[in-house]
Design a protein around this nucleic acid. Structure first.
Lengths: 123, 123
DNA sequence: ATGATAATGATATTGCATTATCAATTAGGA
DNA sequence: TCCTAATTGATAATGCAATATCATTATCAT
């Protein structure tokens, strides 16, 4: 039976407040404010647990450490800012991906990542 | 001055013959046929050199070791087979990605990966 | 309040792709 | 052919995210 802890709440809260996927390191830094003395191992443990419980989903991007976002969001994709290295959400792509799937291939899912500068970095 | 070696030729040939991006490991295995006793370090060295010379491009996919493909191809994306773990090329997506870019963000490039079963695995 | 045990923090360890090291080999111009 | 420097193979080392370990602390049902 899982227990309520300050650390777990802090991790959860940080992810709920950020409306973008965060890395363990980002969660670690932000969650310090709500759980002083927080350890990185605890962050990893709680992220893993919350993914297992399907309260978070893992966002895996090429060449990047894993990020995590709240589960249950509508289908969407991500924008990776090359300057600040933050990842943002973008709405679903509308194009018919089946059209680009080679004959005989079975399409399950897809991932689209946009790269560039976020609003702040473009500023 | 770079020299012509059996090993370098083997790496090059394997990548030219495969019409899909290959990992260092895949290159290593396939190139054995053309260079007996080939070492994995040599494969990595040559891949790195060929990327530096812009004869290959690096294909980085989430949670996967790097893959490499011949440079100079038309813009395209990739299909990652969940069964055999091979990656294939697919033609460019036609949708207007700028439409999904949030206001104020600057879009440089994008990557799209399709997931599913390739023809052989779907067979 | 108490006890059983879940959770934590510090840190060592793992896993894995990739790179560095180095002695031995080989390419290729003189 | 000879020489020199590029290349190679074997393997140790690196980098880094993520996990395991373990003694200590905190939760919460009783």
């Amino acid at each position: 039976m899982p227990r309520k802890t300050q650390q777990r709440n802090a991790v959860q809260r940080v992810l709920a407040d950020a409306n973008r996927p965060l890395s363990a390191q980002e969660v670690f830094e932000a969650a310090q404010d709500f759980a002083t003395g927080l350890g990185i191992a605890t962050v990893y443990r709680n992220l893993k647990m919350m993914v297992r419980e399907k309260r978070l989903v893992l966002v895996s991007l090429a060449g990047e450490p894993n990020r995590y976002e709240l589960a249950g969001k509508a289908h969407h994709h991500h924008f990776h800012c090359r300057d600040c290295n933050r990842v943002f959400e973008v709405p679903e792509c509308t194009s018919d991906l089946r059209r680009m799937t080679p004959d005989g291939f079975l399409l399950d899912s897809h991932d689209l990542v946009l790269y560039g500068k976020c609003r702040e970095c473009a500023g």
